[in-house]
Design a binder for these strands. Structure first.
Length: 378
DNA sequence: GCCGGAAGTA
DNA sequence: TACTTCCGGC
């Protein structure tokens, strides 16, 4: 059965890189065709998309530790996921089951004690998709740290370094050549998991930076090193709309899996995943230290809410309203499950959801999130 | 709410 | 393969 949902629209949209503390997901992370093992949108991609969109702040948002997010409105997230997948009967129970399958894959894990709160294992996400950063000929990565140092001895990769890897300050530079490509020295190696403590198992010695005042999508930029706010939607030092095109060019993000011997890629991913292999067994990604501190982060975002019939009451604007979003970087549109085939027995009028600014921005169509939702709680 | 087994689906 | 659906148990 065909599903003629709007997912295609959404998925082929140029979604900008989104945040990770000190790291931005390249746009391939949001493309179904980049989804490992599947041509369809994967749930974690979808979650990232929502997290990236400002208009869904009241539905799902980054919170707590790096990589951690809270589903403020489980029903709404489930509804959106159902729309995307043409599963009108989707609910949070089912969605959460899918999320739980990510536990074993180490893509996600649950933040215990916090309702509706999960945490991304970015190392897995990254390495599965991008096990080896092929640096246009520059020998890179997956090599032992200088001096044979491994593990804790390996200089950590700082957010700044990661930032530099995926941003291109040289706006006039040759396309497809970010700072990463300027690093030619063999000693320049990248090691993701030591620098991004939220990566890996989720258990690390990383101590949380001081909390900031309640954060919003308007970041207190000065508070962040390299102008980076992990809580900004699509947080990136530069507004995504201002990011150099080269940042998203396929040249900049070749698919290493297509270029590398499978064993190497697999080993990298596997090593990062398990973290159990000895250092000699698993090539590590290393880069020299930059000495930059981890970005501070904000906290204290107000609770969202959840009270909505699965496909019924939608409505108004999210708290703060889906404002005009002239700078919106994606052209997402979720319209109607009626376009789904057989499975969709919902009333056509029950679903009309606009994401992003396909035409006139989210405000034009009314955001999916509602006003005055009560805090999630049951 | 959360977990994970089991069976089914595309 | 990546969920979806259902469900018993905690």
């Amino acid at each position: 059965m065909d599903c003629n949902c709007v997912s295609d629209l959404l998925l082929t949209s140029p979604v900008p890189a989104l945040w990770a503390p000190g790291f931005a997901f390249p746009d391939w992370a949001y493309k179904p065709e980049s989804s490992p093992g599947s041509r369809q949108i994967q749930l974690w991609h979808f979650i990232l998309e929502l997290l990236q969109k400002e208009e869904y702040q009241s539905v799902i948002a980054w919170q707590g530790d790096y990589g951690e997010f809270v589903i403020k409105d489980p029903d709404e997230v489930a509804r959106l996921w159902g729309i995307r997948k043409c599963k009108p009967h989707m609910n949070y129970d089912k969605l959460s089951r899918a999320l739980r399958y990510y536990y074993n894959k180490r893509i996600l894990h649950k933040t215990k004690g916090k309702r509706f709160t999960y945490k991304f294992n970015f190392s897995k996400v990254l390495l599965v998709n991008y096990p080896l950063l092929e640096l246009g000929g520059a020998p890179l990565l997956l090599a032992p740290c200088p001096g044979g140092a491994h593990g804790p001895d390996c200089p950590p990769l700082t957010p700044e370094t990661l930032q530099s890897l995926f941003s291109s300050p040289r706006l006039g530079g040759p396309p497809g050549r970010g700072p990463l490509f300027e690093r030619q020295a063999e000693s320049e190696k990248l090691r993701l998991d030591s620098a991004l403590p939220f990566l890996g198992s989720g258990v690390s010695g990383y101590s949380k930076p001081p909390l900031l005042a309640p954060y919003g999508r308007t970041p207190p930029f000065p508070e962040y090193p390299w102008n980076f706010n992990p809580y900004l939607s699509g947080a990136f030092p530069l507004s995504s709309s201002k990011l150099p095109a080269s940042l998203y060019s396929p040249h900049f993000y070749p698919n290493p899996l297509a270029q590398l011997p499978a064993p190497v890629s697999l080993l990298a991913a596997e090593g990062a995943e398990r973290g159990a292999l000895g250092p000699a067994a698993v090539p590590r990604l290393c880069l020299p230290p930059h000495g930059a501190a981890l970005p501070l982060r904000g906290e204290g975002h107000g609770p969202g809410g959840r009270e909505r019939e699965a496909l019924g009451d939608r409505g108004s604007s999210p708290p703060g309203g889906p404002k005009e979003d002239p700078g919106s970087d994606s052209e997402l549109e979720i319209t109607d499950l009626s376009e789904c085939s057989s499975e969709n027995e919902s009333s056509p009028e029950s679903l009309e959801l606009k994401l992003g600014v396909l035409e006139g921005g989210p405000g034009a169509a009314g955001g999916p999130a509602e006003e005055g939702k009560s805090p999630a709680g049951t």
